[in-house]
């Protein structure tokens, strides 16, 4: 049996105390927004998708069966909603093979923190939404593979394999970036 710290809040909300939902939002908004942002790669859209997901979760709170953690259930809604937003906006999935890497020359070294973040984002943008989300959740260290699988709607083994492949792709990409940097020095 999972001891979910969100359950007392859910009980209060279902008993009619709507304001208790604000506390649940406060607890989960950062993760929800992060998931939406990793999928949509656009802040206003991610904000809208995350808000929409919280509303959907509230409207369907009675159907939450408490077999999984509330956060897992909520993030699954965020994941699906964000994927729907992505499809609506006709953003075409960019595969690792056909993405053009834009290299920029800057005075600061590659391994400066801002550069690290920039190159990480550049490399991450080449993964598909599910891999990007799974990888982010994995490195945020909050979720087990089973929970990531529940959020992204995949099997745990599939998630593990996809995270492995994504890390390998990132390693390859980083190598290309570093080689390019070395050549342009």
């Amino acid at each position: 049996m999972i001891i979910d710290p969100d359950l007392p809040f859910i009980d209060r909300i279902l008993a009619g105390e709507q304001n208790a939902y604000a506390e649940l939002i406060g607890r989960h908004k950062s993760y929800a927004y992060t998931i939406a942002f990793k999928i949509l790669q656009n802040r206003p859209e991610a904000e809208e998708a995350a808000q929409d997901s919280f509303i959907k979760a509230y409207q369907n709170l009675k159907t939450f069966n408490r077999e999984a953690r509330f956060s897992t259930w909520l993030y699954r809604i965020v994941f699906n909603t964000s994927i729907s937003y992505k499809r609506k906006n006709n953003k075409v999935f960019q595969s690792i093979e056909n993405t053009v890497v834009i290299y920029t020359q800057e005075g600061e070294g590659l391994l400066e923190k801002t550069d690290k973040t920039k190159y990480l984002n550049l490399a991450m943008a080449k993964l598909n939404e599910a891999d990007r989300t799974a990888l982010s959740l994995f490195y945020l260290d909050e979720f087990s593979l089973e929970e990531i699988a529940a959020i992204t709607g995949m099997q745990a083994n599939t998630v593990k394999v996809r995270i492995h492949r994504a890390r390998q792709r990132l390693a390859d990409e980083l190598k290309v970036i570093l080689n390019h940097e070395a050549l342009t020095l």
Binding site: Q18, I25, Y31, E47, Q51, I55, T117, Y139, L140
Partner: peptide, 25 residues
Amino acid sequence: VNALFQNLSLEQPSKNFTEQVMMKL
């Protein structure tokens, strides 16, 4: 790759995120 992810942190939504959701409920 692992070192790059050490900088990974949660993205933060707008400050009035909670209020906006509560208003829309």
